[in-house]
Design a protein around this nucleic acid. Structure first.
Length: 510
RNA sequence: GGCCCGUUCGUCUAGCCAGGUCAGGACGCCAGGUUUUCAUCCUGGUAACAGGGGUUCGAAUCCCCUACGGACUACCA
């Protein structure tokens, strides 16, 4: 056990798009595997045929491909333990359920949905401590514990629907160990007789995950905190199946919480606060409803991963920017926190900004060119785009925001920011600009430094402050009171365009 | 209701396991600086040990109780 090869799995259910909490769980599994030189496995848990959503599995695989989480084995990757889709493993579960029955750790139950509902209501009404199918109620139900053996056999042979339930031991102290929370002790009498095998011939999650983790030689189960309450059940299953020696270690990750208020992060929060909760855009095949994705919102996969990695884990140093290799190198389960992490959209944007400013201008220019093409904006050449990006990259969080900061490099302003005009366009500004326009026309070469020196010395001579005139020119060229160095803008858009914009501006603003 | 887990600045968190630091960093926010403007950037500031009991010379750190929060409680995963 101690020297067992490291094998971890991410086991999603293909019931819809993958939530970022799920991506984080997968990420931690992946980092753990990489850190320890182990294998990362993708297993699809599709034991509930009713909840199957077409396209979900493809979505999951595409999401991981996008953000750089790789699988060594599993659906889409193959491997020695195939198949990795539980629906394709259907026939292997029954024997283990039967084994449990033989050993007296499980039993057949024939109760209908209505009967179960009635039982629950009666227990609730009576104010009972537990309202579930358990050691207190099972002897009042229709199952192989209460029925004569011949009757059980008869029902089975005529094909009556049945489920197989675990026979939870009474008053047994179950000690389980979680790598993050340490020892957790539970009394088995507080646990219920969970269904292990469904009437449709499929196992439930509880049986399937134990059987598959054992068969696939999983060494560590790293999953969401919502599974912690069923850990005692799983541990008992390993014990009853005789696999306790080979039982994987467990680590239950804290939840991702909503940015404000209470509770776990949901799709609703994203819609309400304007950030995605899914890695990729998702269109619901039934309703046609579209949910935003990090990819489509312009996040870099590296930024997305970096942000997620730090939501619940930290290296104990002051480093905040990590690539996948660094994360894998430094990751360890004992530095995963115990409490839920509130998602912060602001910090997500900040991470993207960090990656954006660290990228090559050429690379960003490629993405920006795509946006320009979409807008139908023509441009000189990629060198021009790269120069623009160098000037504005510090000011944006996303490539898509570059246009907002740089549109004036491509087209003259159509309007002038009113507030700036009111505050900064004085009576004599027009006249002043007309004088400076002559200097601009005469500037040779039409370069940043030359323009700066010419205008600066002229203004000095006339005892006029730079600020008084520069805002006016900026208004003409940019349309607002913001933006990068003005002389650089002039040089880049060229003399002809500069002159024209100033003439138009002076004309319009007076 | 039952059961389990959790609780350090507004947020992510370090520190806790092996009690002794002005409780550290980052995001946000605020202020100042730089600049022709805005943004960036730089500097500084703001702000936390949920509460109460113990144990101890000394507790964010160990123990107990309370409160609050969350997960789970399906023939869903």
């Amino acid at each position: 056990m101690e020297n067992k090869a490291i094998r971890v799995r991410f086991a999603p259910s293909p019931t819809g798009p993958l939530h970022i909490g799920g991506v984080r769980t997968a990420l931690y599994n992946f980092l753990f595997a990489r850190h320890n030189g182990g294998k990362m496995i993708l297993r699809i848990e599709d034991t509930d045929q009713n909840r199957f959503v077409p396209g979900a599995e493809e979505y999951i695989i595409e999401s991981f491909r996008w953000c750089g989480i790789e699988f060594d084995e599993g659906v889409g990757a193959g491997g020695d333990f195939a198949p990795y889709r539980q629906s394709e493993r259907k026939q292997i579960y029954r024997q283990y359920a039967d084994q449990l029955i033989e050993k007296g750790h499980a039993y057949y139950a024939f109760d209908t949905t209505e009967e179960l509902e009635t039982m629950r209501k009666e227990l609730e009404a009576s104010g009972a401590r537990y309202t579930s199918y358990n050691q207190e109620s099972r002897m009042k139900m229709t199952n192989s514990l209460t029925l004569p053996n011949e009757e059980v056999m008869r029902r089975l042979s005529v094909g009556d629907p049945f489920v197989i339930r675990i026979k939870m031991p009474e008053n047994e102290t179950v000690k389980v160990y979680d790598e993050i929370r340490k020892e957790v002790v539970v009394d088995s009498s507080t646990l219920d007789d969970k269904v292990l095998y469904k009437s449709d011939g499929m196992p439930t999650y509880h049986l399937a995950n134990v059987v598959d983790d054992y068969l696939m030689e999983i060494s560590h189960v790293i999953r969401g905190e919502e599974w912690l309450p069923s850990l005692p059940l799983h541990v008992l299953l390993y014990r009853f199946l005789g696999w306790e020696e080979d039982m994987p270690k467990f680590a239950h990750l804290p939840l991702l919480l909503k940015p404000d208020g209470k509770g776990k992060l949901s799709k609703r929060d994203g819609d309400r606060l304007g950030f995605p909760v899914f890695p990729l855009e998702w269109k619901d095949p039934k309703t046609g409803e579209v949910s935003k994705g990090y990819r489509e919102d312009g996040y870099f996969p590296e930024a997305f991963i970096n942000m997620l990695a730090l939501l619940g884990w930290n290296p104990g140093t002051e480093q905040e920017i990590f690539n996948m290799e660094e994360l894998a190198e430094q990751f360890s389960i004992d530095r995963v926190g115990r409490s839920g992490a509130r998602f912060d959209p602001d910090k997500a944007r900040w991470f993207n900004h960090q990656y954006l400013i660290g990228k090559d201008n050429a690379e960003l220019a490629k993405d920006f060119a795509l946006i320009l093409d979409e807008k139908g904006v023509t441009y000189r050449d990629t060198t021009y785009l790269e120069r623009i990006i160098e000037l504005v990259k510090e000011r944006v969080n996303f490539v898509s925001e570059i246009w907002d900061q740089a549109s004036f490099f491509f087209e003259a302003p159509e309007s002038y920011d009113e507030k700036t005009v009111r505050k900064r366009w004085k009576e004599n500004t027009g006249a002043l600009l007309s004088e400076i326009l002559e200097l601009i026309k005469a500037a040779e070469p039409f370069k940043r430094d030359k323009l700066h020196d010419t205008i600066a010395s002229y203004l000095e001579e006339k005892q006029i402050g730079m600020g008084q005139v520069m805002i006016g020119i900026r208004l003409c060229l940019v349309g607002s009171g913001t933006g990068p160095d003005l002389f650089t803008i002039m040089e880049m858009i060229g003399k002809e365009e500069t002159v024209m914009r100033i003439e138009v501006g002076v004309n319009k603003l007076g």
